[in-house]
Design a protein around this nucleic acid. Sequence first.
DNA 1: AAAAAAT
Length: 452
Amino acid sequence: MLGNTHFPKKESPADLQNNDDEKELPASEKSLLQKIVRTGLVTSKHDIEVQRRDPKSPLYSVKSFELLKLHPSLLKGVYEMGYNAPSKIQETALPLLLANPPQNLIAQSQSGTGKTAAFVLAMLSRVDPTLHYPQVICLSPTYELAIQTGEVAAKMSTFCANIKLRYAVRGEDVEKGSKLQEQIIVGTPGKVLDWVTKYKFLDPKKIKVFVLDEADIMVDTQGHQDQCFRIRKVLQESCQMMFFSATYTENVMRFANAIAPMSVIIRLKREEETLDNIRQYYVTCNTKEDKYNSLVNIYGGVTIGQAMIFCQTKSMAQWLVTEMINQGHAVALLSGELTVQQRISVLDRFREGKEKVLVTTNVLSRGIDIEQVTIVINFDLPVTVSREPDYDTYLHRIGRTGRFGKKGIAINLVTGDGDFRILKQIEEHFCKPIECLNTDNADDMEKLGATD
DNA sequence: AAAAAAT
């Protein structure tokens, strides 16, 4: 299974002449459907690249939600949420996700491009509301992300009275021996695995759709690979797999291919685009106390919007928050050390703007969607265990700002040669300049303030 | 190193 990653060499001429996707569509709808230009197995349209192994996979993009033939109550929910037309990734992914027979999909696109809405819509469409047992499992790497996804699903299904959702996360419990009635389970890997294999609160054979959000972290060896694999193993072979992620490594791709056979792969190209509206800076510091002072200078100089400050360890985050609070600064802390109740309340306060500055760890580096965040500060640069630059985490962290094309600022605090080397590697990797900033210099600080 | 499961 694991070795089965090869692609057929090329399509036969018969396949290339086969225009069946078009035939099934009424002429009235054709003008709104854009056929994707094919070049062998890899097809591309604008900056979207599609790879498919099954020539019968639908290959068109859809320019309006009506054309997806969604249930009217679901369509109403979509519009109620303010979505008018599908985003780029949704255009291509939705026809595939909703196709019959179901297609496995591996989709890559940057943060803020509408991934969540895409798979939530697919999840809700696949559910049979008249059946009162779980039919969909959606896994997220963190508590916060699971809740955020669940909230999107709840909103979108406002008018689908009979669709119910259940969170499988820390703090949630089910009465022993009972069976879940909700059609949709949104959760984190450990809890879901427990519920499925240990307590048998749901029958994995009845799951029709399995979603992995942030799939790259989920199937990474360092991440939740083992738990995900064990959950996948008890599902039907035919269960539809939907993997969504902002970044993919080749390793992860191999794993995803193995547990999601015959997947269609969609990539939204040009990851640099994410960085185009984010201005990146660095500040040289000698010690962590020095970093602290620079931070306070920035904090005092820029009061527009909200800021997220990332530390590499929980203890560093704790130290920083304690220092800042002792000096009278209003900051909040969110890390895995907090209880789930604390985590909810801190994130809610930050969402509502009651907290302006949030100090956190990599727990919030991915997916969290807070529009008002204009500054991301890397108090510690993101590094791997072997102290190599962690490019993916860097991209995800600074991607917390500059969402949906808005402008954002990222500031990196660096100490010593080691840090500087890592910074230079990051700069080279993304081919985007990271400017030097002197927090004692008024002109420099003005640059930050000017970006409203 | 962080996160995710109780224990």
